[in-house]
Amino acid sequence: QNEKLANELKSLLDELNVNELATGSLNTYYKRTIKISGQKAMYALKSKDFKKMSEAKYQLQKIYNEIDEA
């Protein structure tokens, strides 16, 4: 289960640069939040902690959705 979550989180991290570029014309909230979420996700992957990875995955998905809707 950890392996599956780690792969999903890696996949979301692969999209980080594209989504970060998409924040160029948006409010600074999005820029700041996506950077923080990305850092948390990288830390969670290194720690291999299921709870941290779950939270990081949720945060990344949430900010990606917010950027898409903005």
Rank of each mutant, 00 (worst) to 15 (best):
T33S: 12
I36V: 10
G38N: 03
E20V: 15
A22Q: 08
L21Y: 07
Y64Q: 06
S25I: 07
N27Q: 07
T33K: 13
A70I: 06
Q59D: 11
S37E: 11
A41W: 02
S11A: 13
L12R: 01
Y29A: 04
K46N: 07
L12A: 02
L16N: 01
D14I: 06
S54F: 09
E3W: 07
K4T: 07
E3G: 04
D14P: 00
I34G: 00
K48Y: 09
Q39Y: 10
A22H: 07
D68C: 15
E3D: 09
V18Q: 11
G38A: 14
N65Y: 07
K48M: 14
Q39C: 13
N27R: 06
I67W: 03
Y64E: 01
T23G: 05
K10H: 05
E55W: 09
M53Q: 01
S11T: 12
N27C: 14
L5C: 15
I63K: 01
L16V: 03
L9M: 01
L9C: 03
A6Q: 10
A22P: 05
K62I: 05
A70C: 11
K57E: 02
T33N: 09
V18M: 13
L9S: 01
A22M: 14
T28R: 12
M53S: 00
L26I: 04
E3N: 07
Q61C: 11
I34N: 00
A70T: 04
K51N: 09
K52N: 05
A22F: 07
F50W: 09
L5S: 01
K51C: 12
K57W: 07
E3K: 09
K51S: 08
L45H: 03
L12D: 00
S47W: 05
D14L: 11
S37Y: 15
K46R: 10
L45T: 01
L16H: 02
K31H: 06
A22L: 14
Y64N: 03
S47C: 09
K40P: 00
A41V: 04
K4I: 13
Q1F: 10
L16F: 10
L16Q: 02
K46P: 01
K40Y: 15
R32E: 14
A44S: 03
I34D: 00
K40S: 05
V18I: 10
A6G: 03
E69D: 07
K40A: 11
A44K: 01
D14Q: 14
T33H: 09
S25M: 10
E20M: 15
Y29V: 03
L5N: 00
K48A: 06
S47D: 04
N2K: 12
N2G: 08
G38R: 14
S25Y: 07
A41M: 02
K51E: 11
Q1C: 13
Q61V: 06
G24Y: 11
K46Q: 13
L5H: 01
A56M: 04
Y30H: 03
Y30E: 03
E66G: 03
L16G: 02
I36G: 03
K62A: 06
K4H: 07
F50H: 09
Y29N: 03
G24R: 15
N2T: 13
I36P: 01
E66I: 06
A44D: 00
S54G: 05
D14N: 09
S11C: 12
T23P: 04
Q1N: 09
A41Y: 02
Y30R: 03
N19M: 15
E8G: 02
A41R: 01
N27E: 08
M53H: 01
S37H: 11
L12P: 00
K40D: 06
Y43K: 12
L60T: 00
E15V: 13
E15D: 10
K35Y: 10
K52M: 12
K62P: 01
S54M: 14
D49Y: 02
Q39R: 13
L16T: 02
E66W: 10
